[in-house]
Design a protein around this nucleic acid. Sequence first.
DNA 1: TAGCGGCGAGTTGTAGGACAACTTTGAGCG
DNA 2: CGCTCAAAGTTGTCCTACAACTCGCCGCTA
Lengths: 242, 242
Amino acid sequence: MSATNTARTPLARQVAEDLRRRIVSGEFAPGARLPSEAEMCEHYRVSRVTVRTAAKALESQGLVDIRHGSGMYVVDLGGRIRSGLQELRSITETIEESGITAHVRRVSLTRRPALEAEASRLDIPRGSDIVIVHREIFAGDETVAISIDAMPAHLIPPAEDETLGHASVFGVLDRLGLEPVRALAEIHAVRGSDVDIADDDVSEQLLVLLDQVHFDRIGRPIAYSKTYFVEGRFQFTILRTR
Amino acid sequence: MSATNTARTPLARQVAEDLRRRIVSGEFAPGARLPSEAEMCEHYRVSRVTVRTAAKALESQGLVDIRHGSGMYVVDLGGRIRSGLQELRSITETIEESGITAHVRRVSLTRRPALEAEASRLDIPRGSDIVIVHREIFAGDETVAISIDAMPAHLIPPAEDETLGHASVFGVLDRLGLEPVRALAEIHAVRGSDVDIADDDVSEQLLVLLDQVHFDRIGRPIAYSKTYFVEGRFQFTILRTR
DNA sequence: TAGCGGCGAGTTGTAGGACAACTTTGAGCG
DNA sequence: CGCTCAAAGTTGTCCTACAACTCGCCGCTA
Protein backbone atom coordinates (compact mmCIF):
# COMPACT_ATOMS: atom_id res chain seq x y z
CA MET A 1 0.00 0.00 0.00
CA SER A 2 1.24 3.46 -0.85
CA ALA A 3 0.28 7.03 -0.09
CA THR A 4 -0.46 7.71 -3.74
CA ASN A 5 -4.16 7.23 -4.10
CA THR A 6 -4.38 5.49 -7.45
CA ALA A 7 -7.81 3.96 -6.89
CA ARG A 8 -10.83 6.13 -6.17
CA THR A 9 -11.47 4.30 -2.93
CA PRO A 10 -10.49 6.55 -0.04
CA LEU A 11 -7.20 5.78 1.63
CA ALA A 12 -8.82 5.29 5.02
CA ARG A 13 -11.06 2.64 3.57
CA GLN A 14 -8.14 0.84 1.97
CA VAL A 15 -6.29 0.80 5.26
CA ALA A 16 -9.38 -0.37 7.12
CA GLU A 17 -9.93 -3.22 4.70
CA ASP A 18 -6.34 -4.36 4.86
CA LEU A 19 -6.31 -4.14 8.63
CA ARG A 20 -9.52 -6.09 8.75
CA ARG A 21 -8.08 -8.76 6.49
CA ARG A 22 -5.00 -9.06 8.68
CA ILE A 23 -7.11 -9.40 11.81
CA VAL A 24 -9.52 -12.04 10.57
CA SER A 25 -6.63 -13.92 8.96
CA GLY A 26 -5.25 -14.39 12.45
CA GLU A 27 -2.15 -12.23 12.10
CA PHE A 28 -3.29 -10.62 15.35
CA ALA A 29 -4.75 -12.92 17.95
CA PRO A 30 -7.97 -12.05 19.79
CA GLY A 31 -7.13 -9.84 22.73
CA ALA A 32 -3.74 -8.90 21.32
CA ARG A 33 -2.60 -5.32 21.08
CA LEU A 34 -2.18 -3.92 17.59
CA PRO A 35 0.71 -1.69 16.55
CA SER A 36 0.36 1.90 17.69
CA GLU A 37 -1.07 4.52 15.38
CA ALA A 38 2.42 5.91 14.80
CA GLU A 39 3.71 2.51 13.71
CA MET A 40 0.77 2.01 11.39
CA CYS A 41 1.46 5.41 9.83
CA GLU A 42 4.92 4.20 8.90
CA HIS A 43 3.72 0.81 7.71
CA TYR A 44 1.00 2.16 5.44
CA ARG A 45 2.76 5.42 4.61
CA VAL A 46 -0.29 7.48 5.49
CA SER A 47 -1.04 10.18 8.02
CA ARG A 48 -2.30 9.58 11.50
CA VAL A 49 -5.68 11.00 10.56
CA THR A 50 -6.11 8.25 7.97
CA VAL A 51 -5.01 5.53 10.35
CA ARG A 52 -7.39 6.82 12.99
CA THR A 53 -10.29 6.98 10.55
CA ALA A 54 -9.66 3.38 9.59
CA ALA A 55 -9.28 2.32 13.21
CA LYS A 56 -12.51 4.04 14.20
CA ALA A 57 -14.34 2.25 11.40
CA LEU A 58 -13.10 -1.13 12.62
CA GLU A 59 -14.06 -0.15 16.15
CA SER A 60 -17.66 0.58 15.20
CA GLN A 61 -17.72 -2.72 13.36
CA GLY A 62 -16.91 -4.28 16.70
CA LEU A 63 -13.65 -5.72 15.47
CA VAL A 64 -11.25 -3.78 17.66
CA ASP A 65 -11.34 -1.85 20.89
CA ILE A 66 -9.48 1.45 21.16
CA ARG A 67 -8.43 2.44 24.68
CA HIS A 68 -7.32 5.96 25.40
CA GLY A 69 -3.72 6.07 26.50
CA SER A 70 -3.26 2.37 26.10
CA GLY A 71 -3.68 1.12 22.57
CA MET A 72 -5.82 -0.76 20.11
CA TYR A 73 -6.86 -4.33 20.88
CA VAL A 74 -8.46 -7.09 18.87
CA VAL A 75 -11.87 -7.79 20.34
CA ASP A 76 -12.04 -11.21 21.97
CA LEU A 77 -15.47 -12.69 22.27
CA GLY A 78 -14.29 -15.98 23.65
CA GLY A 79 -13.83 -17.79 20.37
CA ARG A 80 -17.32 -16.98 19.18
CA ILE A 81 -17.61 -15.69 15.66
CA ARG A 82 -17.43 -11.99 15.19
CA SER A 83 -18.61 -11.46 11.64
CA GLY A 84 -22.35 -11.29 11.80
CA LEU A 85 -25.51 -10.26 10.08
CA GLN A 86 -25.04 -6.56 10.85
CA GLU A 87 -22.58 -6.52 7.97
CA LEU A 88 -24.07 -6.58 4.56
CA ARG A 89 -22.85 -9.43 2.44
CA SER A 90 -24.51 -12.13 0.43
CA ILE A 91 -26.23 -14.95 2.21
CA THR A 92 -24.19 -17.55 0.40
CA GLU A 93 -21.02 -15.81 1.48
CA THR A 94 -22.25 -15.66 5.07
CA ILE A 95 -23.01 -19.34 5.10
CA GLU A 96 -19.67 -20.23 3.55
CA GLU A 97 -17.85 -18.25 6.23
CA SER A 98 -19.44 -20.29 8.96
CA GLY A 99 -17.53 -23.29 7.67
CA ILE A 100 -20.38 -24.96 5.85
CA THR A 101 -19.72 -25.77 2.22
CA ALA A 102 -22.99 -24.81 0.67
CA HIS A 103 -24.39 -25.43 -2.77
CA VAL A 104 -26.87 -23.24 -4.57
CA ARG A 105 -29.56 -24.53 -6.87
CA ARG A 106 -31.65 -22.13 -8.87
CA VAL A 107 -35.20 -23.37 -8.83
CA SER A 108 -36.63 -20.79 -11.19
CA LEU A 109 -36.31 -17.34 -12.69
CA THR A 110 -39.49 -15.45 -13.57
CA ARG A 111 -40.37 -12.11 -15.08
CA ARG A 112 -43.85 -10.89 -14.28
CA PRO A 113 -45.72 -7.74 -13.22
CA ALA A 114 -45.23 -6.72 -9.62
CA LEU A 115 -48.06 -7.08 -7.16
CA GLU A 116 -49.14 -4.06 -5.20
CA ALA A 117 -47.06 -4.87 -2.13
CA GLU A 118 -43.98 -5.72 -4.19
CA ALA A 119 -44.17 -2.51 -6.19
CA SER A 120 -44.47 -0.46 -3.03
CA ARG A 121 -41.45 -2.13 -1.43
CA LEU A 122 -39.31 -1.49 -4.50
CA ASP A 123 -40.75 1.97 -4.98
CA ILE A 124 -41.67 1.30 -8.61
CA PRO A 125 -44.92 1.92 -10.52
CA ARG A 126 -47.52 -0.65 -9.77
CA GLY A 127 -47.74 -3.30 -12.44
CA SER A 128 -44.24 -2.79 -13.84
CA ASP A 129 -42.22 -5.94 -14.34
CA ILE A 130 -39.94 -7.54 -11.78
CA VAL A 131 -37.46 -10.40 -11.96
CA ILE A 132 -37.89 -13.10 -9.37
CA VAL A 133 -35.22 -15.65 -8.57
CA HIS A 134 -36.10 -18.66 -6.49
CA ARG A 135 -33.15 -20.55 -5.04
CA GLU A 136 -32.36 -23.32 -2.64
CA ILE A 137 -29.23 -23.50 -0.57
CA PHE A 138 -28.19 -26.86 0.78
CA ALA A 139 -25.31 -28.63 2.48
CA GLY A 140 -25.01 -32.26 1.56
CA ASP A 141 -28.57 -33.36 0.91
CA GLU A 142 -30.09 -31.16 3.59
CA THR A 143 -31.84 -27.94 2.74
CA VAL A 144 -30.32 -25.08 4.72
CA ALA A 145 -32.32 -22.21 3.31
CA ILE A 146 -34.74 -21.20 0.60
CA SER A 147 -34.57 -17.74 -0.87
CA ILE A 148 -36.61 -15.45 -3.06
CA ASP A 149 -34.97 -12.43 -4.61
CA ALA A 150 -36.88 -9.77 -6.50
CA MET A 151 -35.58 -6.84 -8.54
CA PRO A 152 -37.14 -4.32 -10.90
CA ALA A 153 -36.93 -5.87 -14.35
CA HIS A 154 -35.68 -2.73 -16.01
CA LEU A 155 -32.47 -2.97 -13.98
CA ILE A 156 -31.64 -6.45 -15.21
CA PRO A 157 -30.91 -6.90 -18.93
CA PRO A 158 -32.43 -10.16 -20.21
CA ALA A 159 -28.93 -11.31 -21.16
CA GLU A 160 -28.25 -11.81 -17.47
CA ASP A 161 -31.12 -14.21 -17.02
CA GLU A 162 -28.87 -17.15 -17.78
CA THR A 163 -26.36 -16.46 -15.04
CA LEU A 164 -28.52 -14.73 -12.45
CA GLY A 165 -29.11 -16.88 -9.44
CA HIS A 166 -26.58 -19.64 -9.99
CA ALA A 167 -24.14 -17.87 -7.72
CA SER A 168 -24.47 -14.75 -5.60
CA VAL A 169 -27.03 -12.26 -6.81
CA PHE A 170 -24.78 -9.53 -5.44
CA GLY A 171 -22.16 -10.31 -8.05
CA VAL A 172 -24.56 -9.60 -10.88
CA LEU A 173 -25.81 -6.39 -9.30
CA ASP A 174 -22.24 -5.22 -8.82
CA ARG A 175 -21.45 -5.85 -12.47
CA LEU A 176 -24.44 -3.75 -13.42
CA GLY A 177 -23.19 -0.86 -11.29
CA LEU A 178 -25.89 -1.42 -8.68
CA GLU A 179 -24.05 -1.71 -5.44
CA PRO A 180 -26.28 -2.34 -2.44
CA VAL A 181 -24.75 -0.53 0.52
CA ARG A 182 -27.54 -0.94 3.04
CA ALA A 183 -30.28 -3.42 3.77
CA LEU A 184 -33.13 -3.26 6.23
CA ALA A 185 -34.09 -6.66 7.57
CA GLU A 186 -37.03 -7.97 9.53
CA ILE A 187 -37.03 -11.35 11.21
CA HIS A 188 -39.96 -13.68 11.60
CA ALA A 189 -40.62 -17.18 12.81
CA VAL A 190 -42.77 -19.21 10.41
CA ARG A 191 -43.94 -22.77 9.97
CA GLY A 192 -42.60 -24.57 6.91
CA SER A 193 -46.11 -25.73 6.17
CA ASP A 194 -47.20 -22.11 5.81
CA VAL A 195 -44.59 -21.31 3.16
CA ASP A 196 -45.85 -22.25 -0.28
CA ILE A 197 -42.41 -22.66 -1.83
CA ALA A 198 -41.29 -25.14 0.80
CA ASP A 199 -40.67 -28.71 -0.31
CA ASP A 200 -41.25 -31.84 1.73
CA ASP A 201 -37.89 -31.65 3.45
CA VAL A 202 -38.72 -28.39 5.19
CA SER A 203 -42.50 -28.33 5.44
CA GLU A 204 -42.33 -30.04 8.84
CA GLN A 205 -39.72 -27.63 10.16
CA LEU A 206 -39.72 -24.23 11.77
CA LEU A 207 -38.14 -21.51 9.68
CA VAL A 208 -36.45 -18.21 10.47
CA LEU A 209 -37.46 -15.70 7.82
CA LEU A 210 -35.01 -12.93 6.99
CA ASP A 211 -37.07 -10.36 5.10
CA GLN A 212 -34.90 -7.67 3.54
CA VAL A 213 -34.97 -4.61 1.32
CA HIS A 214 -31.66 -3.59 -0.25
CA PHE A 215 -30.77 0.02 -1.01
CA ASP A 216 -28.10 1.71 -3.10
CA ARG A 217 -26.02 4.65 -1.93
CA ILE A 218 -28.64 7.28 -2.52
CA GLY A 219 -31.38 5.31 -0.83
CA ARG A 220 -33.20 3.77 -3.76
CA PRO A 221 -34.49 0.24 -3.19
CA ILE A 222 -32.89 -2.06 -5.73
CA ALA A 223 -34.01 -5.45 -4.49
CA TYR A 224 -35.90 -7.25 -1.82
CA SER A 225 -35.41 -10.76 -0.64
CA LYS A 226 -36.96 -13.33 1.61
CA THR A 227 -34.63 -15.96 2.98
CA TYR A 228 -36.09 -18.88 4.91
CA PHE A 229 -33.53 -20.57 7.14
CA VAL A 230 -34.41 -24.00 8.40
CA GLU A 231 -34.20 -23.74 12.19
CA GLY A 232 -31.14 -25.46 13.59
CA ARG A 233 -29.29 -26.10 10.35
CA PHE A 234 -27.49 -22.82 10.03
CA GLN A 235 -26.92 -20.34 12.80
CA PHE A 236 -26.22 -16.70 12.02
CA THR A 237 -25.16 -14.19 14.63
CA ILE A 238 -25.62 -10.48 15.13
CA LEU A 239 -22.96 -8.39 16.77
CA ARG A 240 -24.55 -5.51 18.62
CA THR A 241 -22.44 -2.49 19.59
CA ARG A 242 -22.89 0.82 21.31
CA MET B 1 -22.30 21.83 24.28
CA SER B 2 -18.93 23.40 24.94
CA ALA B 3 -15.34 22.69 24.06
CA THR B 4 -14.43 22.24 27.71
CA ASN B 5 -14.52 18.53 28.30
CA THR B 6 -16.02 18.36 31.76
CA ALA B 7 -17.26 14.78 31.49
CA ARG B 8 -14.91 11.91 30.77
CA THR B 9 -16.87 10.96 27.70
CA PRO B 10 -14.84 11.92 24.64
CA LEU B 11 -15.91 15.06 22.83
CA ALA B 12 -16.45 13.22 19.56
CA ARG B 13 -18.87 10.91 21.26
CA GLN B 14 -20.80 13.78 22.81
CA VAL B 15 -21.12 15.44 19.43
CA ALA B 16 -22.18 12.17 17.81
CA GLU B 17 -24.85 11.59 20.41
CA ASP B 18 -26.24 15.08 20.13
CA LEU B 19 -26.22 14.91 16.35
CA ARG B 20 -27.95 11.59 16.51
CA ARG B 21 -30.57 12.98 18.83
CA ARG B 22 -31.21 15.90 16.52
CA ILE B 23 -31.57 13.60 13.53
CA VAL B 24 -33.99 11.11 15.06
CA SER B 25 -35.94 13.97 16.62
CA GLY B 26 -36.71 15.11 13.09
CA GLU B 27 -34.74 18.34 13.13
CA PHE B 28 -33.22 17.11 9.88
CA ALA B 29 -35.56 15.35 7.50
CA PRO B 30 -34.59 12.08 5.80
CA GLY B 31 -32.60 12.87 2.68
CA ALA B 32 -31.81 16.38 3.86
CA ARG B 33 -28.32 17.78 3.84
CA LEU B 34 -26.76 18.49 7.20
CA PRO B 35 -24.67 21.55 7.97
CA SER B 36 -21.13 21.39 6.64
CA GLU B 37 -18.28 20.27 8.87
CA ALA B 38 -17.11 23.86 9.17
CA GLU B 39 -20.50 25.00 10.37
CA MET B 40 -20.69 22.17 12.90
CA CYS B 41 -17.26 23.16 14.21
CA GLU B 42 -18.64 26.59 15.02
CA HIS B 43 -21.88 25.28 16.44
CA TYR B 44 -20.25 22.78 18.78
CA ARG B 45 -17.06 24.78 19.34
CA VAL B 46 -14.87 21.82 18.53
CA SER B 47 -12.24 21.08 15.93
CA ARG B 48 -12.94 19.56 12.56
CA VAL B 49 -11.23 16.36 13.66
CA THR B 50 -13.87 15.93 16.35
CA VAL B 51 -16.76 16.70 14.03
CA ARG B 52 -15.44 14.26 11.45
CA THR B 53 -14.97 11.53 14.02
CA ALA B 54 -18.55 11.98 15.15
CA ALA B 55 -19.82 12.08 11.57
CA LYS B 56 -17.95 8.92 10.66
CA ALA B 57 -19.45 7.15 13.65
CA LEU B 58 -22.96 8.09 12.56
CA GLU B 59 -22.12 6.99 9.04
CA SER B 60 -21.09 3.51 10.13
CA GLN B 61 -24.28 3.35 12.17
CA GLY B 62 -26.09 3.84 8.89
CA LEU B 63 -27.67 7.07 10.03
CA VAL B 64 -26.03 9.46 7.58
CA ASP B 65 -24.28 9.28 4.26
CA ILE B 66 -21.12 11.32 3.70
CA ARG B 67 -20.40 12.23 0.07
CA HIS B 68 -16.99 13.54 -0.90
CA GLY B 69 -17.21 17.08 -2.19
CA SER B 70 -20.90 17.32 -1.59
CA GLY B 71 -21.93 17.01 2.02
CA MET B 72 -23.50 14.91 4.68
CA TYR B 73 -27.04 13.60 4.19
CA VAL B 74 -29.57 11.94 6.45
CA VAL B 75 -30.13 8.42 5.19
CA ASP B 76 -33.61 7.96 3.82
CA LEU B 77 -34.92 4.42 3.88
CA GLY B 78 -38.35 5.32 2.65
CA GLY B 79 -39.95 6.02 5.99
CA ARG B 80 -38.90 2.68 7.42
CA ILE B 81 -37.37 2.72 10.86
CA ARG B 82 -33.66 3.10 11.04
CA SER B 83 -32.79 2.27 14.61
CA GLY B 84 -32.35 -1.45 14.69
CA LEU B 85 -31.05 -4.41 16.57
CA GLN B 86 -27.46 -3.86 15.46
CA GLU B 87 -27.27 -1.17 18.11
CA LEU B 88 -26.98 -2.35 21.64
CA ARG B 89 -29.67 -1.02 23.88
CA SER B 90 -32.10 -2.57 26.26
CA ILE B 91 -35.01 -4.53 24.90
CA THR B 92 -37.52 -2.41 26.73
CA GLU B 93 -35.98 0.70 25.22
CA THR B 94 -36.08 -0.84 21.76
CA ILE B 95 -39.73 -1.69 22.12
CA GLU B 96 -40.60 1.75 23.43
CA GLU B 97 -38.91 3.37 20.44
CA SER B 98 -41.13 1.49 18.05
CA GLY B 99 -44.08 3.41 19.45
CA ILE B 100 -45.46 0.69 21.66
CA THR B 101 -45.97 1.66 25.28
CA ALA B 102 -44.76 -1.45 27.01
CA HIS B 103 -45.03 -2.56 30.61
CA VAL B 104 -42.61 -4.81 32.41
CA ARG B 105 -43.59 -7.32 35.03
CA ARG B 106 -40.96 -9.17 36.97
CA VAL B 107 -42.06 -12.74 37.35
CA SER B 108 -39.24 -13.87 39.59
CA LEU B 109 -35.68 -13.33 40.74
CA THR B 110 -33.61 -16.35 41.71
CA ARG B 111 -30.13 -17.01 43.00
CA ARG B 112 -28.85 -20.49 42.39
CA PRO B 113 -25.72 -22.36 41.23
CA ALA B 114 -25.04 -22.16 37.51
CA LEU B 115 -25.49 -25.19 35.34
CA GLU B 116 -22.62 -26.38 33.23
CA ALA B 117 -23.80 -24.58 30.07
CA GLU B 118 -24.57 -21.38 31.93
CA ALA B 119 -21.19 -21.28 33.64
CA SER B 120 -19.44 -21.79 30.35
CA ARG B 121 -21.35 -18.98 28.66
CA LEU B 122 -20.52 -16.57 31.45
CA ASP B 123 -16.97 -17.85 31.77
CA ILE B 124 -17.28 -18.46 35.49
CA PRO B 125 -16.39 -21.51 37.61
CA ARG B 126 -18.91 -24.26 37.31
CA GLY B 127 -21.31 -24.31 40.23
CA SER B 128 -20.81 -20.69 41.27
CA ASP B 129 -23.97 -18.73 41.87
CA ILE B 130 -25.87 -16.75 39.28
CA VAL B 131 -28.80 -14.34 39.50
CA ILE B 132 -31.70 -15.08 37.21
CA VAL B 133 -34.40 -12.56 36.41
CA HIS B 134 -37.55 -13.71 34.69
CA ARG B 135 -39.66 -10.94 33.17
CA GLU B 136 -42.67 -10.45 30.98
CA ILE B 137 -43.14 -7.51 28.66
CA PHE B 138 -46.63 -6.70 27.52
CA ALA B 139 -48.64 -4.03 25.75
CA GLY B 140 -52.19 -3.75 26.98
CA ASP B 141 -53.09 -7.27 28.02
CA GLU B 142 -51.09 -8.96 25.28
CA THR B 143 -47.73 -10.54 25.99
CA VAL B 144 -45.12 -9.12 23.65
CA ALA B 145 -42.07 -10.90 24.96
CA ILE B 146 -40.75 -13.05 27.76
CA SER B 147 -37.18 -12.65 28.89
CA ILE B 148 -34.65 -14.42 31.04
CA ASP B 149 -31.54 -12.55 32.17
CA ALA B 150 -28.67 -14.23 33.98
CA MET B 151 -25.64 -12.66 35.64
CA PRO B 152 -22.86 -13.92 37.88
CA ALA B 153 -24.13 -13.46 41.44
CA HIS B 154 -20.88 -11.97 42.69
CA LEU B 155 -21.43 -8.97 40.42
CA ILE B 156 -24.82 -8.15 41.89
CA PRO B 157 -24.95 -7.10 45.56
CA PRO B 158 -28.04 -8.59 47.25
CA ALA B 159 -29.22 -5.06 48.01
CA GLU B 160 -30.06 -4.72 44.32
CA ASP B 161 -32.39 -7.70 44.33
CA GLU B 162 -35.31 -5.46 45.15
CA THR B 163 -34.98 -3.18 42.17
CA LEU B 164 -33.40 -5.52 39.62
CA GLY B 165 -35.78 -6.42 36.87
CA HIS B 166 -38.57 -3.96 37.46
CA ALA B 167 -37.11 -1.65 34.85
CA SER B 168 -34.21 -2.09 32.48
CA VAL B 169 -31.51 -4.47 33.67
CA PHE B 170 -29.00 -2.25 31.88
CA GLY B 171 -29.63 0.55 34.32
CA VAL B 172 -28.61 -1.56 37.27
CA LEU B 173 -25.51 -2.85 35.53
CA ASP B 174 -24.52 0.69 34.65
CA ARG B 175 -24.84 1.77 38.26
CA LEU B 176 -22.56 -1.06 39.28
CA GLY B 177 -19.94 0.09 36.79
CA LEU B 178 -20.63 -2.84 34.50
CA GLU B 179 -21.30 -1.30 31.16
CA PRO B 180 -22.08 -3.79 28.43
CA VAL B 181 -20.60 -2.48 25.21
CA ARG B 182 -21.10 -5.48 22.97
CA ALA B 183 -23.51 -8.34 22.66
CA LEU B 184 -23.43 -11.39 20.45
CA ALA B 185 -26.89 -12.58 19.49
CA GLU B 186 -28.28 -15.72 17.91
CA ILE B 187 -31.77 -15.96 16.56
CA HIS B 188 -34.03 -19.00 16.64
CA ALA B 189 -37.57 -19.87 15.79
CA VAL B 190 -39.29 -21.85 18.55
CA ARG B 191 -42.76 -23.08 19.43
CA GLY B 192 -44.34 -21.55 22.49
CA SER B 193 -45.29 -25.00 23.62
CA ASP B 194 -41.59 -25.93 23.74
CA VAL B 195 -40.70 -23.09 26.08
CA ASP B 196 -41.26 -24.05 29.69
CA ILE B 197 -41.67 -20.52 30.97
CA ALA B 198 -44.42 -19.72 28.49
CA ASP B 199 -47.88 -19.09 29.88
CA ASP B 200 -51.15 -19.96 28.19
CA ASP B 201 -51.24 -16.76 26.18
CA VAL B 202 -48.13 -17.63 24.22
CA SER B 203 -47.94 -21.41 24.27
CA GLU B 204 -49.95 -21.62 21.05
CA GLN B 205 -47.78 -19.05 19.28
CA LEU B 206 -44.53 -19.10 17.38
CA LEU B 207 -41.71 -17.23 19.08
CA VAL B 208 -38.56 -15.54 17.85
CA LEU B 209 -35.80 -16.23 20.34
CA LEU B 210 -33.05 -13.64 20.71
CA ASP B 211 -30.27 -15.44 22.53
CA GLN B 212 -27.53 -13.07 23.66
CA VAL B 213 -24.30 -12.85 25.59
CA HIS B 214 -23.29 -9.38 26.79
CA PHE B 215 -19.67 -8.31 27.15
CA ASP B 216 -17.92 -5.43 28.85
CA ARG B 217 -15.19 -3.34 27.30
CA ILE B 218 -12.42 -5.80 27.88
CA GLY B 219 -14.39 -8.75 26.59
CA ARG B 220 -15.61 -10.39 29.76
CA PRO B 221 -19.10 -11.83 29.60
CA ILE B 222 -21.24 -10.08 32.19
CA ALA B 223 -24.67 -11.41 31.36
CA TYR B 224 -26.62 -13.59 29.03
CA SER B 225 -30.23 -13.30 28.11
CA LYS B 226 -32.93 -15.13 26.24
CA THR B 227 -35.75 -12.99 24.92
CA TYR B 228 -38.75 -14.71 23.38
CA PHE B 229 -40.73 -12.40 21.11
CA VAL B 230 -44.23 -13.50 20.24
CA GLU B 231 -44.30 -13.61 16.45
CA GLY B 232 -46.25 -10.74 14.95
CA ARG B 233 -46.66 -8.63 18.07
CA PHE B 234 -43.44 -6.71 17.92
CA GLN B 235 -41.22 -6.34 14.92
CA PHE B 236 -37.59 -5.45 15.29
CA THR B 237 -35.35 -4.57 12.38
CA ILE B 238 -31.68 -4.96 11.60
CA LEU B 239 -29.84 -2.37 9.57
CA ARG B 240 -27.06 -4.01 7.61
CA THR B 241 -24.24 -1.89 6.22
CA ARG B 242 -21.06 -2.37 4.23
C1' DT C 1 11.35 -6.61 52.49
C1' DA C 2 6.77 -5.30 51.17
C1' DG C 3 3.99 -1.67 49.95
C1' DC C 4 3.11 2.81 48.29
C1' DG C 5 3.55 6.99 45.52
C1' DG C 6 4.84 9.43 41.84
C1' DC C 7 7.54 10.28 37.80
C1' DG C 8 8.08 9.49 32.92
C1' DA C 9 7.63 7.25 28.58
C1' DG C 10 4.21 5.67 25.45
C1' DT C 11 -0.41 6.05 23.43
C1' DT C 12 -4.80 7.92 22.08
C1' DG C 13 -7.82 12.38 21.88
C1' DT C 14 -8.26 17.14 20.16
C1' DA C 15 -6.77 21.53 17.94
C1' DG C 16 -5.55 24.41 13.97
C1' DG C 17 -3.95 25.32 9.46
C1' DA C 18 -3.03 23.89 4.85
C1' DC C 19 -3.76 21.71 0.56
C1' DA C 20 -5.76 17.86 -2.57
C1' DA C 21 -9.82 15.74 -4.60
C1' DC C 22 -14.38 16.02 -5.67
C1' DT C 23 -19.23 18.07 -6.49
C1' DT C 24 -22.30 21.61 -7.66
C1' DT C 25 -23.54 25.83 -9.48
C1' DG C 26 -23.84 29.29 -12.61
C1' DA C 27 -21.88 32.57 -15.85
C1' DG C 28 -20.42 32.92 -20.46
C1' DC C 29 -20.35 31.44 -25.13
C1' DG C 30 -21.55 29.21 -29.40
C1' DC D 1 -31.03 26.28 -25.77
C1' DG D 2 -27.17 23.42 -24.60
C1' DC D 3 -22.40 23.11 -23.74
C1' DT D 4 -17.89 24.40 -21.50
C1' DC D 5 -15.48 25.66 -17.85
C1' DA D 6 -14.20 28.44 -14.07
C1' DA D 7 -15.16 29.25 -9.27
C1' DA D 8 -16.99 28.37 -4.89
C1' DG D 9 -18.14 25.02 -1.54
C1' DT D 10 -17.36 20.52 0.71
C1' DT D 11 -15.07 16.38 2.14
C1' DG D 12 -10.37 13.70 2.22
C1' DT D 13 -5.61 13.80 3.74
C1' DC D 14 -1.35 15.72 5.67
C1' DC D 15 1.50 18.04 9.25
C1' DT D 16 2.57 19.69 13.82
C1' DA D 17 1.57 20.43 18.43
C1' DC D 18 -0.35 19.65 22.75
C1' DA D 19 -3.84 17.58 26.19
C1' DA D 20 -5.50 13.48 28.54
C1' DC D 21 -4.85 9.04 29.84
C1' DT D 22 -2.38 4.35 30.92
C1' DC D 23 1.13 1.65 32.63
C1' DG D 24 5.42 0.13 34.21
C1' DC D 25 9.55 1.46 36.68
C1' DC D 26 12.04 3.20 40.52
C1' DG D 27 12.91 5.00 44.72
C1' DC D 28 11.12 6.09 49.21
C1' DT D 29 9.07 4.70 53.41
C1' DA D 30 7.41 2.01 57.14
